[in-house]
Design a protein around this nucleic acid. Structure first.
Length: 942
RNA sequence: AGGCACGUAGCUCAGUGGGAGAGCACUACCUUGACACGGUAGGGGUCGGCGGUUCAAUCCCGCCCGUGCCUACCA
């Protein structure tokens, strides 16, 4: 085995073998009665390649799936990809643009062909990347949301909901994206907050202008004009009313009067509306544009106002724009303002900080527009989804999110599901050109259901991507057909995803699962944070701070990173950030290191600020594990053709019997680690589970046990050496199994080299049994207490070594004494171990001599432990020793001080539980003794 | 505006009603037969601020300051 673990070759080799052997495939054999464990992957969008967020998802899910598989379940992880309607269409259109084409140049059919080509490319890339991450998906069940079977499911769901009256077609004010030229659901609109004034679009400016009263109304009321304010001056072309508060004294005389529109031939009524108007704001008069503002729309309905749309689908003004028709919306805004100035109707402007609604995909400012679209009635679906979480049938982790879930579902709006795109599931509705009948049908229609005319056309729109995603947990298993997979694997167990799609996806899956299957689609929702760069900023191509998981796994030079960022369109400061933060690029850290890193962040955190240093740390951990294995295998069975002293040693999967303290101790510590690992994984605290194993391997197995094993293996006691050999192999093999869900590659690589027999002799670690506390390990409190004494002793000796710069080769003598027989026995038994680890020779001494080192030894350094003291003669510089002891004494006195303060507090003695008081007294007594010993030692230094 | 988080060592973050932790960074020493992607020993924090509950608060409660996200509205 080489000194350094090299991930690259091991990863590809083992993954190909696992896949080819069919280890990932879930069983559907009728005689297989194992409990199932199913996870549906959150299907990545076929918009390009996987990012760090996907890597995070993949790792978490893979840990859960591998764990349950090793626990003996029939584990199924369904992989697949999402067609991602709008996002994918945008990507392909951008590629066309590079060729100087638009989708309209190609036409719908040819364009869709191009998208399919792209989806093949992107989809294959993504599935390949999942494999690089180690994902143990059942590839034989791979799905794509536009596969024929899943499209069939979408159509069935649509038709059923329509027949049940839960899908309807309606004319509403919707969110219009003028760049993508499609309607968006409320969720796809993102509000940009606190936007400042920008010259270019003229946004965030409150512009005042006057409407002149009709001549006769002006004469009758003596009022000449009314001033209104707006942030969108061009919408005044669609104004069909002015509203005032009914109680507003200033305008009481104007109720029912009219103003004249300055640009179009329209008389505009002045109406009273207490809901819309806040008399305190501005002039107390609101211009009402029912066709372009949600509040105005509602106001229009209340007053029966005309709805005049002024925009074309591309954001230019239509014929209702009068003299401004044809202008682009922001041009029109400028032109309207200029014209109002010219007419002397402008009444000033001021900057106004506000929020702007933007399209999640195109980033353009969303326009409210009246349009006929398809909607899902949400209230009847939301009720059961709320109940499912309330009753605990679905558990959301971390729990904080349940509140958010309830809040959204309890205030839910109908869901606009039609999109004016080309890429997506067609809407199964046909319109008759003759009788105007609309048919919604499971099968494609060539004739009108009502009049039989062949003059029928399918609705040109497609469905929101999330409509098909909502069916994912059961459509991937064969629904609406009653397949064996559906019967066996639905409902699934865990749904792990990012909290950002809790509404988009998770809530809708629960609604649809309950509606169509009558059962929740999964019993737990596991929400993870969003991966950001190390500053905590969202990764984005423009910021240049995107970290490609594959670059971390395979390594990348600084130049390569810069080139990629520039190609992706990073801004100058983004490139600079990249250059200064990662000047040397990345080493090939390997998939296991990346996985461990992602696992190490708490799921409670909403942000995963991915740190390369941290990845490096886990790369080092992989290497530590590798070298621990090198040691064990080299010392026992030998390596590289050299037979070792224990050629017959085997890991059998059975816990060896142990007598020696270090062997008892390591099995006990393993027990604690295994308990934490199991508890952590099942509670979705993968950070705690992985950290327990990290800590065990590094701080206990490597730092102590491997060192302790050396004198045991080299000693004269053959039986003890055999016992130790068995324990070393057992602990190594068990630890590998425990780590396998997190670090699948390196654990397989090492495990295959471990000589195994009995139940440990399996073909692959991924189908080996996951280790269990109490079975594979054994808690032994006594061994922990005893070994703690050994550790304290060794550390004390090493401290003296370090303090006086004693070289490793220079042996030291330690004269020690202990207060009770138990401690004396422990040290006597472990004497050779302590000597080996401390590089010392131990001599038990009378307490009188140890406690007065100045009298009995020359230049002796001293240490004081609970019930145990030692001196090391011939090493000290008295001045330095005084400093060292004083430093320690200060700490002890400080600690003692807080305890004594408590113990002199009557209220504490009276109010605290007896056991707490007792413990405090014991601690104080121990510290007091230590203090006395130390101050005595200092005093005796002279 | 409302809601939800968060504020702990230089950095990134765990954690708990009773003795402040990890990784990285830092200091000193060590190329020792598993590992320098290493070892040993260290230094470093009034747990955001102010009150309250409690025998006891970093933890529970209230207010304030700061940060992030979500929802709604902004003529």
């Amino acid at each position: 085995m080489p000194k350094l673990y090299v991930p690259a070759s091991a990863e590809d080799r083992w993954y190909a073998w696992w896949e080819q052997q069919g280890f990932f495939t879930a069983s559907n054999a009728p005689e297989d009665t194992r409990e199932t464990y199913t996870v549906a992957i959150p299907p990545p969008n076929v918009t390009g390649t996987l990012h760090m967020g996907h890597a995070c998802r993949t790792t978490f899910e893979d840990v859960l799936v591998r764990y349950e598989r090793m626990k003996g379940k029939n584990a199924l992880w369904v992989p697949g990809t999402d067609h991602a309607g709008i996002a994918t269409q945008v990507v392909v259109e951008r590629k066309l643009k590079a060729e100087g084409l638009t989708r309209h140049d190609l036409g719908r059919e040819k364009f869709i062909e191009r998208v399919w080509e792209w989806r093949k490319e992107s989809g294959d890339t993504i599935l390949g990347q999942l494999r690089k991450m180690g994902a143990s998906c059942d590839w034989s069940r791979t799905k794509f949301t536009m596969d024929p079977d899943l499209s069939h499911a979408v159509r069935e769901a649509f038709v059923r909901l329509y027949e049940e009256g839960l899908i309807y077609r309606g004319t509403r004010l919707v969110n219009w994206d003028v760049v993508s030229q499609t309607v968006l659901s409320d969720l796809e609109v993102e509000t940009e907050e606190n936007v400042k004034y920008t010259e270019e679009f003229g946004v965030c400016e409150l512009f005042d202008f006057a409407y002149k009263l009709d001549a006769e109304d002006a004469a009758a009321t003596g009022v000449d004009e009314i001033i209104v304010s707006t942030t969108r001056p061009e919408t005044m072309l669609g104004d069909t009313a002015l509203a005032v508060h009914p109680e507003d004294e200033r305008y009481k005389g104007l109720h029912g009067r009219f103003v004249t529109h300055p640009f179009v031939d329209r008389r505009i009524p002045i109406v009273c509306d207490a809901t819309l108007v806040d008399p305190e704001f501005g002039t107390g008069v609101v211009k009402v544009t029912p066709a372009h503002d949600p509040n105005d729309f509602a106001t229009g309905k209340r007053h029966g106002l005309e709805e005049i749309s002024i925009l074309n689908k591309d954001g230019t003004l239509n014929e209702n724009g009068g003299p401004f028709a044809g202008l682009e919306r922001f041009e029109a805004r400028k032109a309207v303002k200029a014209k109002l100035e010219e007419l002397g109707l402008a009444r000033g402007k001021r900057k106004h900080v506000m929020s702007l609604p933007r399209s999640q995909r195109s980033g353009s400012i969303v326009e409210p527009m009246i349009s006929t679209q398809w909607f899902v009635k949400m209230e009847p679906l939301a009720g059961p989804a709320i109940e499912a979480v309330e009753s605990g049938k679905v558990q959301i982790l971390p729990e904080d999110w349940t509140k958010t879930y309830f809040h959204w579902l309890r205030n839910i709006q109908d869901w606009c599901i039609s999109r004016q795109l080309w890429w997506g599931h067609g809407i199964p509705a046909w319109y008759c050109g003759d009788c105007e009948h609309m048919s919604v049908s499971r099968t494609d229609l060539s004739a009108c259901e009502k009049c039989g005319s062949a003059n029928v056309e399918q609705d040109p729109d497609v469905l929101d991507t999330w409509f098909s995603s909502a069916l994912w947990p059961f459509s991937t298993l064969g629904w609406p057909n009653q397949t064996p997979d559906l019967a066996r694997f639905y409902p699934t167990q865990d749904m792990e995803t990012g909290y950002d799609i809790l509404f988009f996806w998770v809530a809708r899956m629960i609604m649809m699962g309950l509606h169509f299957m009558g059962e929740v689609p999964f019993s737990r929702v596991l929400l993870a944070g969003l991966v950001t760069d190390e500053r905590g900023q969202k990764m984005s191509k423009v910021k240049g701070n995107v970290i490609d998981p594959l670059d971390v796994i395979h390594g990348a030079t600084g130049a390569h990173l810069l080139m990629k960022a520039e190609q992706a369109g990073a801004a100058a400061d983004g490139v600079e950030y990249l250059r200064t933060t990662y000047p040397d690029g990345f080493d090939a850290y390997g998939a296991d290191a990346l996985r461990m890193t992602l696992l190490s962040y708490s799921p409670q955190s909403r942000r995963i600020a991915l740190s390369i240093k941290r990845i490096e740390g886990y790369r080092n951990f992989a290497n530590k594990l590798w070298n621990a294995a090198r040691y064990v295998l080299g010392r026992l069975v030998g390596q590289d053709g050299e037979p070792g002293p224990h050629p017959d040693a085997r890991a059998t999967g059975a816990r060896p019997a142990v007598t020696a303290l270090p062997n008892r101790w390591i099995l006990s510590r393993l027990d604690v680690a295994l308990a934490s690992a199991n508890a952590g994984i099942t509670a979705y605290r993968l950070d705690e589970g992985s950290q327990a194993l990290y800590h065990f391997v590094w701080d206990e197995l490597c730092d102590w046990y491997l060192e302790l094993s050396k004198p045991l293996l080299d000693g004269d006691d053959r039986a003890l050496a055999e016992e130790t050999a068995a324990v070393l192999l057992h602990v190594l093999e068990t630890t590998l199994r425990a780590l396998h869900p997190m670090m699948p590659f390196i654990t397989e690589e090492i495990w295959q080299r471990v000589p195994r027999a009995g139940v440990a002799a399996g073909e692959t670690i991924m189908l080996a049994r996951y280790p269990q506390a109490g079975t594979d390990s054994l808690r032994d409190e006594a061994s922990e207490r005893e070994l703690a004494v050994v550790q304290e002793f060794v550390v004390a000796a090493r401290s003296i070594r370090a303090e006086y710069d004693l070289p490793r080769k220079q042996g030291i003598a330690i004269h020690w004494c202990a207060d009770d027989a138990e401690k004396v026995a422990t040290i006597e038994t472990a004497r050779s171990l302590i000597e080996a680890l401390a590089g010392a020779t131990l001599t038990q001494e009378e307490a009188a001599k140890v406690d007065d080192p100045h009298q009995h030894f020359t230049l002796a350094a001293a240490f004081v432990l609970p019930g145990l003291r030692g001196v090391v003669p011939g090493v000290i510089d008295p001045v330095k020793e005084r400093e060292r002891l004083t430093r320690q004494l200060t700490k002890v006195e400080k600690e003692l001080g807080t305890l004594e303060k408590k113990l002199t507090n009557e209220k504490f003695l009276g109010g605290a539980p007896a056991e707490v008081v007792e413990q405090t007294k014991r601690d104080a007594a121990e510290l007091r003794e230590k203090r006395d010993q130390m101050s005595g030692a200092i005093a005796r230094l002279g």
